[in-house]
Amino acid sequence: MDLTYIFQQVLNALSLGSMLALLAVGYTMIYGVLGLINFAHGEVFMIGAFTAMYAITGLGFPLPIALILAIIASVLAGVLLERFCYRPVQGSGDITLFITSLAASIGIRSLFVMLFGSRSMQFPMPKYLQGIRFWGDILITDLNLIIFVFTVIITLILSFFIKNTKLGIAMRGVSYNKQTAEAMGINSTSIIVATFVIGSALAAVAGVAWGLQYGNVRPAMGYHPGISGFIAAVLGGIGNISGAAISGFLLGVGQVLFVAFLPSVYSGFRPLFVWIVLFIILFYKPTGLFRSNIKWE
């Protein structure tokens, strides 16, 4: 077990970390404005991946177009969720919201099983993403690198947007106090919709990245990444965007390293890692790793 091996494993984990970061940012933003852990976020991610898969294999579109269609489909799913699942039960308490989002998650997943079956379907990867490069003894795939760079760029743009634009400031205002924000002339409903649009678009990107990285999609694919993204959001101090992104990367890398150090028969234990982390963190620091709650920065 040498440094090269560890470094190689970290590089391998970059794409997984990126996907979890994108999901965690969506979780944390939606939690910020709605006080809701949107468990259906994993399904929004899955819908993005399915749409891209169908656009490529069924309709023969190139990947960039498929990505745009995936974003549109996920955004639509997110907005419909907000409109028809969460808005009607707003103000009826945390438990109601919690159960609603769990029900939405299970409902969407089951619907996709009915429509497409529960088996994996192949997600084709274009030739130009199949490259591999070597740095000394270390190997990295182009895809891994592209997903990572893409995620960093998106996260930086989003942070800038949240920090500096009027809409971004309004989102932070609504997440701090919805009623006061309304009394400043902000239509909080449209801010909430805008947040679902952004969060769902990020989930779509993560979904397409997942399809490319693992080569297949299936209706239940959102479950584990969804849970991991949620845990990354908790780790980041829920409501904290940069915290969520960084925690997403850390969780991805941690998951890969966790199984890398175990004998290969235990590779199926990868998801266990996030639960152990959640348990430890919540035990010692119930508010999360990063500074304070509901703090968008």
């Binding site: 009027k166 400031i169 932070r172 205002g173 701090y176 924000a181 400043m184 902000i186 968008w296």
Partner: peptide
């Protein structure tokens, strides 16, 4: 808005 600075409060 305690999470925003003075300028951002005024922007809202």
């Amino acid at each position: 808005f305690g999470n925003l600075n003075v300028y951002e409060n005024l922007r809202i």
